[in-house]
Computed example of a mutant assay.
Amino acid sequence: MGKFSTLVSQAHSLAGPSLALIYPLYASVMALESTSKLDDEQWLAYWIIYSFLTLVEMVIQPALEYIPIWYDVKLLLVGWLVLPQFKGAAFLYERFVREQLKKSRGTSQTQTQTHNKGKAKFVDFIIPKKGEHEAH
């Protein structure tokens, strides 16, 4: 029974990084290479939510030490976020993150104009217009 227990323990410890990082990295690259925007949204939402979860986990780490099933709960949560059958990351983003962004941004015309000006300046900085060359 000792070898089986060790094998299960090792598989369990590999499941988290595989499910939370390796598969999402692969799927994100595949999404970027596909023509569909839906998969891009799913994986961007995943990385946003996973980053937030990781930050929260870092902050409350001392409390998590008293919750022995935290790793299992996190594994289930990440599975729900990642697996295409559930699209949990896209759901959470649409339901909570986007709603909070809408509330904090507001929809005033001046904010939209200011945002568009800043965006245009950034684009102009990154992609200079034709005829604007640096002197070397």
Rank of each mutant, 00 (worst) to 15 (best):
G88C: 06
L101A: 13
Y66M: 07
A135L: 12
E65A: 10
Q42C: 04
M30I: 06
P68N: 13
W43K: 02
Y93H: 13
F122V: 05
A45V: 01
D72C: 01
E99K: 14
F91V: 02
L83K: 02
W70P: 00
E57T: 10
S9W: 05
I67D: 02
K130S: 11
V82C: 06
V73R: 01
L32T: 04
E132P: 00
G16T: 09
F52M: 13
M30F: 13
V56C: 14
T112D: 04
A120F: 03
V29G: 03
V123A: 14
H133S: 06
Q85I: 02
L25V: 14
Q61T: 03
F125S: 07
Q61W: 06
V8D: 07
H115E: 11
E94M: 06
V56T: 12
W70G: 02
S34V: 02
E94K: 15
Q10H: 10
P84S: 15
M1Y: 09
K121E: 13
D72P: 00
W80L: 09
L77I: 08
S13H: 03
A120Y: 05
Q100S: 09
G131Q: 09
K74R: 13
S36F: 00
E94D: 15
H136T: 10
H136D: 14
E132T: 10
L7G: 09
K119F: 15
G118L: 10
S36C: 00
Y46K: 09
L38A: 12
L7E: 12
S5N: 10
Q109G: 02
S5T: 14
K74L: 08
G2W: 02
S28M: 01
E99F: 09
Q100R: 08
L38C: 05
I126R: 05
G2E: 15
F4E: 11
S9R: 08
P84M: 08
A63K: 09
G106H: 07
L92G: 00
M58K: 13
Q42N: 12
I48S: 14
F91P: 01
V59K: 11
L32S: 08
G79R: 08
G118D: 02
L92M: 07
A31S: 13
V73L: 15
D72A: 12
L53W: 03
K74W: 00
W43N: 12
F86G: 01
T35V: 02
V82K: 00
L75R: 04
V59L: 15
E41A: 11
T35Y: 04
V82G: 01
K129R: 10
A89I: 01
V29E: 07
K37E: 09
L81M: 12
S104Q: 12
A27W: 11
S104T: 08
S34D: 15
T114L: 13
L44W: 06
A120D: 12
A63H: 05
L32H: 04
A31Q: 05
L38M: 10
K103I: 08
L77T: 02
L32Q: 10
P128N: 07
L75H: 11
V29Q: 05
Q100M: 11
P17E: 03
K129L: 11
K37C: 03
G88W: 07
A63W: 14
A89G: 09
D72V: 09
S28E: 06
L14S: 07
R98M: 12
G106T: 03
H133M: 03
W80V: 03
Q109N: 10
Q109D: 07
A45T: 01
D39E: 15
P128A: 08
E41V: 09
V82F: 06
Y46H: 10
L81R: 02
E41C: 01
H136W: 06
